[in-house]
């Protein structure tokens, strides 16, 4: 009990240090508790599938458990764990794309994309104001953005990471991160112009 209380006050980096050095399972459990929901949100926004997202977050935690020693304290723990989750999510997306014979239009050119989002004019005002419908529209629009832009937009605008952190997670230069985020936002804005 006392140990748990002490662990609660530790930072993420201190917790993983504890787990690495003493193999303290409570430290691991605490990190899982802290990161399961943010990771779930990130992966779900990226994939749009709740069951697959749950599996990926589970696998992320398993990888974290098995490869705890590969974490180095020079980086933030959140950066490290998001990198693992992001890679697993991208692998899942690739696997799905390989299996999909006929997929919905996912053209490189944003102008070619056919909108499948309800137009504001066709929706009753009370419905348009409904947050859940709006959220659904945003999620659908997010899934239409190219994955390389989508991941960065989610990390920046939904998860709230800094450009530097995103650069570290994705192993991209700062300039590339910024330009991709802006492209993703522009595309998303185009898709969502009818709802705001």
């Amino acid at each position: 009990m006392k140990l748990e209380k002490n662990l609660n006050s530790l930072t993420d980096e201190e917790l993983i240090k504890e787990f690495q050095d003493n193999n303290t399972l409570e430290a691991y459990e605490l990190l899982v508790k802290r990161f399961k929901d943010p990771l779930m949100n990130f992966v779900y926004r990226f994939l749009g599938d709740r069951d697959a997202s749950t599996d990926i977050v589970q696998d992320t935690m398993i990888k974290f458990y098995l490869n705890k020693d590969s974490y180095q304290s020079i980086a933030k723990f959140s950066t490290w764990i998001y990198t693992i989750a992001g890679n697993l999510a991208k692998n899942e997306l690739k696997r799905r794309n390989r299996r999909t014979i006929l997929s919905i239009s996912n053209s490189d050119d944003p102008d070619d994309i056919t909108l499948q989002i309800e137009d504001k004019k066709t929706v009753a005002p009370d419905r348009a104001a409904d947050n859940s419908i709006k959220a659904d529209m945003v999620q659908k629009a997010l899934l239409k953005v190219k994955p390389i832009y989508r991941e960065l937009v989610i990390l920046r605008d939904i998860e709230g990471f800094s450009y530097d952190e995103i650069s570290e997670m994705t192993d991209l230069s700062l300039g590339t991160v910024k330009s991709r985020i802006n492209r993703g936002r522009a595309h998303l804005q185009k898709l969502l112009k009818n709802i705001y």
Binding site: K36, V57, Q58, I62, A135, V153, L192, Y196
Partner: peptide, 29 residues
Amino acid sequence: EFGELKKLLHDLPKVKAPDNFEFNLMTRI
């Protein structure tokens, strides 16, 4: 330029892991 969009994205409801997530994870371990 993207102010409204960023607000829209930030206000999206947070998706949470299922209740039995930790139990399943620890069972697997």
